[in-house]
Write a protein that binds this DNA or RNA. Sequence first.
DNA 1: TGCCCACTTGACACGGTGTCAATTGACGTC
DNA 2: GACGTCAATTGACACCGTGTCAAGTGGGCA
Lengths: 170, 170
Amino acid sequence: MTDIAKRAGITRQALYLHFSTRAELLIASTHHVDVVRAVDERLVPSRTAATGIERLDAYIDAWASYIPEIHGIAKALISMSDTDDAASVAWADRMRAMRQGCDAAINALRKDKMLSPHYSPKQATDLLWTLLSVRNWESLTIECGWSQKRYADTMRSLARRLFVAEQPTH
Amino acid sequence: MTDIAKRAGITRQALYLHFSTRAELLIASTHHVDVVRAVDERLVPSRTAATGIERLDAYIDAWASYIPEIHGIAKALISMSDTDDAASVAWADRMRAMRQGCDAAINALRKDKMLSPHYSPKQATDLLWTLLSVRNWESLTIECGWSQKRYADTMRSLARRLFVAEQPTH
DNA sequence: TGCCCACTTGACACGGTGTCAATTGACGTC
DNA sequence: GACGTCAATTGACACCGTGTCAAGTGGGCA
């Protein structure tokens, strides 16, 4: 909080006039990024995709390009979640929203009869949601040195191979 | 530290006589678990596997059964890693050892000419290492409610589908 | 002129980690 | 039986980060 106040050119106490806790500040920051970076617009291609496969691809692309932009805040929020209830709830909320996107993509596949018979819809959603986690992005890009493009490409092809049936089911 | 001392029936200060920092205590705990739970022995099936595919399966099984046993300590170590250098180094070390196992499994596949042409060995190792992360285990078992068995089964089949070539290469 | 309001200054409480000094008590040794 | 050792105890304290509080300052507007 001291550092942030300094960077903002105000005192720590003035910062508390705007955000009564550290968690509140971080949460507000995520909302601010969403607005500034026009996150909603980026999801349009996914929502309007013609086929399940396209929807899956578009969703992964949107999410992959979103992660780096919230990564710093996300990391702070995640590490606060261990000890801070407000932060934990806020992050869980984010993740629930992200999961809805996964669920929608998997369901679009299912409606096209293109969901792999290996997984139930719930299992597929669980798995996709886990695969696309911020931690996995960190692991591949930051720790393994993958480029953003390689991350997105790999995730797209991986999701296809895991979740798309070889032939239409039934 | 206060809580741990209480549970151990000694004072906080006495605890510091044994472990000079919190990080040191956690690191010692992981070593202790390794000994008590005979972790090395569990890796024997993987090391002695006849084929690459068997090695991959055996490694995933060994790791999957290991995670729940160190999960508590791992979580503490991971969350300390953000702020504590010693913890960060210790956890990175663990993960490097785990990565070697992934690398060995992928290489065994490659030697059998059964590594999927989709990935270079390095990429495959990166991906397997990321997929098997403690965070992903947490996500699937704790957050999504998967049983330990389902986790292990899914990871095994997923790794096969991702990394094992349909036909021998060349 | 006078008020409001954002902000400042400076202090303090709390909890957690890590440190230090003095003391206690059990143990084996001379 | 006296002695030293050593683990552990008691009780204090420093430091850091979060969050709180009270009193004061200064600019803008009615």
